[in-house]
């Protein structure tokens, strides 16, 4: 009924989407691994980043791939400020408060975007948006192939940052034992904010990679954030390789479900995996015991 070529193409397409999913999940899992909180504002911040990419393209004519250069530091700064001056002070150190504060932020950001940009769906018309690359029997979309490569590259860079630099060492120290880290002179509030900033920087890169082939409207983040939660839970909360493999896996699952079940039911496979993992093994495949 389905020829192997169609299935192979669905798998490869799923892998390419999955890499960008992984990048979004990476920001989420990093914040979880260090701050031990679930950032519900992640989706709304992704939407904000996508609108930022769209705006710089429309206003300055800046190519989405070049927009990575200004937007990544900008979103790092935004994330840093949010954690340092809003989420941190407002939550008084209680986990359930952080949950509510980030939920409040996500509602505020999403609806500010709705008020500013209205609910129209917008796309970018780049001249390479529909170009394809032929690899063997497969026809692959060029921007998505670039997205795949860049997402994997960013994951590797982040991994190096965490394992090789002093900042990375400080982040890992705070993640393991924040009291001990503060005793040896690490500024925990600063490290928290840096981590949150890195999470937001991942979103900026993901937004730049998505926009050539995707569309944006104020509600788009919700679709991504549930997928990202699934990936994070599947890969293990806080695990970076887990986020990468989880992302690729979920991308393929979504693509195959879409092929066999049709578009409207395509996402159901993701949520069933999500619920199943949460119920059976909430620490995920790569996660440490909670």
């Amino acid at each position: 009924m389905y020829s192997p070529a169609i299935i192979a193409e669905a798998v490869v397409n799923g892998l390419m989407t999955g890499a960008v999913y992984a990048l979004i999940a990476l920001g989420l899992t990093l914040v979880y691994g260090v701050l031990h909180i679930i950032n519900f504002a992640h989706g709304a911040l992704l939407t904000a980043a996508m609108f930022a990419v769209w705006s710089v393209y429309v206003v300055f004519g800046l190519d989405p791939y070049l927009a990575i250069l200004p937007l990544t530091p900008l979103f790092f700064g935004l994330g840093y400020a949010l954690q340092r001056f809003v989420i941190g002070p407002a939550s008084h150190g209680s986990d359930s408060n952080i949950l509510l504060v980030t939920l409040g932020l996500s509602i505020a950001v999403e609806n500010a975007l709705l008020a500013g940009f209205r609910s129209d769906t917008r796309t970018l018309n780049t001249d390479y948006g529909f170009q394809v690359v032929e690899i063997g029997p497969l026809l692959l979309s060029k921007p998505r192939l670039i997205g795949f490569g860049a997402a994997v590259l960013v994951t590797v860079l982040l991994w190096l940052l965490l394992s090789r630099t002093d900042t990375g060492k400080a982040i890992r120290a705070v993640a393991k034992e924040k009291l001990g880290a503060s005793l040896v002179g690490i500024n925990v509030a600063h490290v928290y904010a840096v981590t949150f900033g890195l999470g937001c920087a991942c979103l900026a890169v993901a937004a730049c990679l998505l926009m050539p082939t995707f569309y944006v409207n104020p509600r788009i983040g919700q679709a991504f954030v549930l997928v990202a939660f699934t990936i994070v839970v599947l890969g293990g909360m806080g695990s970076i390789p887990g986020a990468l493999f989880g992302g690729l896996f979920i991308g393929v699952v979504e693509s195959l479900c879409g092929l066999f079940l049709g578009d409207s039911l395509g996402q159901i496979g993701i949520f069933l995996i999500f619920i199943l993992v949460l119920l059976v093994r909430p620490t995920g495949l790569f996660g440490a015991k909670a």
Binding site: V86, P89, A90, S91, H92, N97, L100, V101, L103, G104, L105, S106, I107, A108, V109, E110, N111, A112, L113, L114, A115, R118, S119, P218
Partner: peptide
Amino acid sequence: SVPGIDLMVFGALLVVAVAFAP
């Protein structure tokens, strides 16, 4: 009639409530 403006206020209010009026 700006869409979303009331929800935007709700979201901000949630943050403020958690911060100052638990």
